[in-house]
């Protein structure tokens, strides 16, 4: 390796050099690769289950909304599997993976003393933290892409394609009824859902990093982050609190679920995107400001 990353006019090294630094650390840690393994196992379990289930209960639910199916082959296909598997993957697994990665990035490094080893070098704290955010965002993006590609590929290979029928209540979006998306439209809907879901995860990444930048241990960071996330998710499961939904960040994080409606409400999606952008800026600004002022005591 020859003289990496020249120092800029500000005296600090470039964001690119910080990213290379973060990448080396991320890639070298075994725990970074565990989520990919977990996702693979989860997808394998889902495929196996889909092979064996008869979907009798789902069929009776569809019937109450006017979709009558004689057997599961009429509605269970690769798209159905992908869309429905996105729920646990993006609501449960991804937040856990991201919280852990974020917790290790700042609080974990503080705990192990490597944060102070970084900060006695002429690198701006803001740039270091933003570098970590970009790396975390990239990591989330890669995980999300991996999950959705693996799900779609195994789903389509095992069960073929077809129209996507879905029960709205499964997506917990406060809407009754069932939806149908024509087969030709599904790939675009999946891409849209992936993009929106990943954008939502960025908020969680920013929040996790903010918390990570403030506490002294990785465990504290991810316990706090996940507690906040799941507390808000729980609020969303009480129907009598539906007036509160638009003000909860998790509502906007889960807006991707609407991509599987019969008709996409673009207006609501734009509102969510604006909210997500607002949360992102606020969380990152808070993280940077507080991290600049924090005493590195470990």
């Amino acid at each position: 390796m020859n003289a990496v990353g020249a120092t800029g006019a500000s005296g600090s090294i470039s964001l690119g050099a910080v990213l290379r630094f973060e990448w080396t650390k991320l890639a070298g840690r075994r725990i970074t690769w565990v989520p990919f393994l977990v996702l693979t196992l989860v997808v394998l379990i889902i495929v196996t289950t889909f092979h064996h289930l008869q979907f009798i209960y789902a069929r009776s639910l569809f019937k109450t909304f006017g979709f009558v199916f004689q057997n599961k082959d009429e509605f269970v296909n690769g798209y159905y599997m992908t869309a429905h598997a996105m729920n646990p993957v993006f609501q449960l697994l991804m937040p856990i993976f991201i919280s852990v990665a974020a917790g290790l990035m700042v609080a974990g490094e503080a705990e192990h003393g490597t944060l102070r080893a970084c900060l006695v070098r002429p690198v701006s704290r803001t740039r270091l933290l933003l570098g970590k955010f970009v790396m975390l965002a990239g990591y989330s993006l890669a995980l999300a892409l991996f999950a959705i590609v693996l799900l779609t590929a195994t789903g389509v290979l095992s069960f073929g394609t077809g129209n996507l029928y879905s029960l709205n209540i499964l997506f917990n979006n406060g809407q009754e009824g069932a939806s149908m998306v024509p087969a030709a439209e599904v790939p675009m809907r999946l891409v849209g859902a992936w993009l929106l879901a990943t954008t939502g995860l960025m908020i969680l990444a920013a929040m996790a990093l903010l918390i990570s930048a403030l506490v002294e241990s990785a465990a504290m960071a991810y316990v706090l982050t996940l507690s906040i996330y799941f507390a808000f998710l729980t609020l969303r499961s009480f129907p009598f609190l539906d007036w509160l939904y638009p003000y909860l960040f998790v509502t906007h994080m889960l807006r991707w679920q609407q991509c599987f409606y019969s008709f996409v409400k673009t207006g609501e999606i734009y509102v969510s995107l604006i909210h997500l952008a607002g949360y992102l800026i606020a969380l990152l600004a808070a993280a940077v400001l507080l991290f600049e002022q924090r005493d590195i005591k470990n």
Partner: peptide, 30 residues
């Protein structure tokens, strides 16, 4: 400088540690 005790990324080699930390100072020739 180091304070308290020097700290490193245990899963990386000694040399890799030196490379990445010095990278934060603008890098040095091998």
């Amino acid at each position: 400088a180091f304070v308290e005790a020097p700290s490193f990324y245990p899963y990386l080699t000694g040399r890799k540690n030196l490379e990445i930390f010095t990278g934060l100072s603008g890098g040095v020739p091998a």
